[in-house]
Design a protein around this nucleic acid. Sequence first.
RNA 1: GCCCCUAUGGCGGAACUGGUAGACGCGUCCGACUCAAAAUCGGAUUCCGCAAGGAGUGCUGGUUCGAUUCCGGCUAGGGGCACCA
Length: 875
Amino acid sequence: MFSDRYNPRDVESKWQKIWDDNQIFETKNDDPRPKYYVLEMFPYPSGRIHMGHVRNYAMGDVVARFKRACGMNVLHPMGWDAFGMPAENAAIQNNVHPAAWTHDNIASMRTQLKSIGLSLDWSREIATCDPSYYKHQQKMFLDFYSAGLVIRKKAKVNWDPVDQTVLANEQVIDGKGWRSGAVVEQRELTQWFFNITSFAEELLESLNTLPRWPEKVRLMQRNWIGRSEGVLIRFEINSKNPPAGFSEIEVFTTRPDTLFGAKFLALSPDHPIALTLATSDLGLSAFLDESRMNGTSMAAMETAEKKGWDTKLTVAHPFIPGQSVPVYIANFVLMEYGSGAVFGCPAHDQRDLDFANKYDLGNTPVVRPSSQDPETFVITTTAYEEDGVLFNSGFLNGLSTSEAAKRAIDALEQGDLNGAARGKRQVNFRLRDWGISRQRYWGCPIPIIHCEACGSVPAPADELPIELPADVTFDRLGNPLERHPTWKFVACPRCGKNARRETDTMDTFVDSSWYFARFTDPTIADAPTNRTVVDSWLPVDQYIGGIEHAVLHLLYSRFFTRAMKATGHVSVSEPFAGLFTQGMVVHETYKGPDGSWVLPQDVCLDGIGSSRRATLKSDGSHVTIGGIEKMSKSKKNVVDPDEIIQDYGADTARLFMLSDSPPDRDVIWSHEGVQGAGRFSQQLWRLVGNLVNVCAPLDSDPGSVEQSSALVIRRLVHRALLRVQDHYEKLRFNTAIAEIRKLTNALNATLGEMENTPSADEALALREAADVLVVMFSPVMPHLAEECWSRLGHKDLLSDAAWPAVIDTLAQEDTIVIPVQINGKKRAEISVPRDIDNESLERLALKLEPVEKALENRSPKKVIIVPQRIVNVVV
RNA sequence: GCCCCUAUGGCGGAACUGGUAGACGCGUCCGACUCAAAAUCGGAUUCCGCAAGGAGUGCUGGUUCGAUUCCGGCUAGGGGCACCA
């Protein structure tokens, strides 16, 4: 018997060193085997890895190791998303330089990651805060600038008052900064933008070319891009003295079918006409100020009263000669969407109706449900927003909503207003340009020089990188670059006069928008990418990360890749061919008698179900069991990966993170779960030990095996192998592990039955079983597998071993058990040859006792036979 | 408000394109080993019933020989967007 316990602590570090010394995970770009690029979202170097990292990287590692074993040239790199706010906050609080803080964190996290035994190519490690990385980012910024993909414009932007910086729309969640949680304010500032909207249509369309992305993520991006088709209508101002320079108002609508019901026009408080009018009207000026004061938070918008200002202007209705429509300025119209002006059709839009009722503008219903009588169909306080039949609408009468919309647009396009069409079809997007200026120090400097004479001048390419100055202070709020005594003062590269550097840095999401491309050739100095190399690796075959980046990082990267393509840095448009979004690691929360959070290890749990009780270990006082939530330090429901690896080993941590829950769902951390995983490691170790004692020697050929008991073992093994590889292929780690456990149980039982004294044939089959079993679990538990492999006598490294080939004839059963149903309910089973013909199967089934009993000598009404599946007798 | 997803034993979950519901694990119970405990091993574990048998995949209706799976209506939980014209 092989009774010694497996000791992960010694074994794991031993194999990690051997892998390292042999550089077996270093990937060559000129390797002739087919490529496979697997990547997990790189971490922010916060200082410590957490269980979420372990889960994320364990998944990627299983894929990487599996694909390696399958004979592919796998690229599996790791790096650091190293710029960002926490480093600056640490600098402010602890008087440590962001660079030093970041590099220390990288060092300790690297050590932690290495202890997990990931098959990473550390020779390709990059950190985005390294000038050798951001140099190329600055080069691409300039390339994008020349290509018109970078623009500088004044716009309403989101200002995070805590982080003291601007945020992109995607980085504002529920009106709050994604990192600080502070309620975001609106400010009008001149900023740098990436022209992501120029790719809006393409970014939307191409989602259809990504079948290996979760539908949920594609949907979220679709909604975020928010395409809507409509028409831009020109309304002629028919007042005698319109504001200077304005003779018409453009309005975007998706409901031109309701045009006959128009009762007012509403302009945004930021609309040029509103601004012009306000210069000579103090009351209006005050109204505009008041409108802008309104918060943009969810609560503020829901409760904000819809308010309007009558401009006394009117416009001509495009379809009803002689009818004029009043023009209001309204606090709910956004300047950023469409043309900053809407027409109101109160009968068919609730908000318009509320507004019209408030200002007594009336309503004319023009769409009715087909069942409704036009004579009696009136609108009072509830707008009819559904589709229907047009009435009260001149040439649109009787048409359906969609047909009427088409006709209305046609009429507008053919109609004439001062020598041009009255309207034109237009597609509008919700997506806004990506504002990348950040008023922060710890980011990639924007390589632009502002000259009073020449404007914004690109920094000369040979001066890149524009490095961050090291001598900065964090004793005051604001951007240290702005107040640095010398850094920003330079000569204009164009005219040589005194000029200033741009002191804003780039959004850190820029850094992470192309790191996957840099990994393909991370040391090339004179360009961001080596075209031959990057084109041979991209797209990433399998990308794995959290759902929280569904529209942030994942949309930015899709844009950036397109921009890189447009400027000649890559050939692909889509960076990630396959995407997998893993669930979070969650844990129950506990609160002590004083309402403060309590660590799980300080809690004693009793009972099950609704009678579960929790008490404090120290003094037995009552503990409230809270919800199961994402692990976070503030709620004290964290489990430190280091401790788990110390106590149970990395393999056990990896196994537990992958078993039980499907990888895309949250996994609940439980002490019992880890112990169960640890137990299974020991079981495997024991089983392999027992197999070693009885199985045939290394490299023996099981092909000659004839004894049926040995063939049973072989079938078991090949069937499991087939299933496990299928599960790995589809990233179903939980079911792969279940299958491995099943095989383990079966082999244990087999060994028990033969009392550890197999025949010669059985010994051959067991040798195969042992080798295959170990290979099968190696992607999940690589250290244990490597140790078992060596124990089985192999001289080579398991990490270099090939995935065994499934023998189809063995994986298929030749005798199968088929359920027999009577009227759709299972009543019996029969064991038959796999390839039995339907007639014989029916004959056998009808002779079964429960069937005969049910038939009572009558003949069945119908017999349904699905080959290899089921027999259903209808009586 | 709009859009989307999910719902299976005490718990996490499994079930390929409609074909034996509950794989695998956790927990619990019983037993073995032990002076004892831990560890380990064996067995049981959807519910009702002594049993034969019956019921059962959130609720409800439908399609089908047959529905966890497809369709309609509801309920609950979760997520995304949000004054988007």
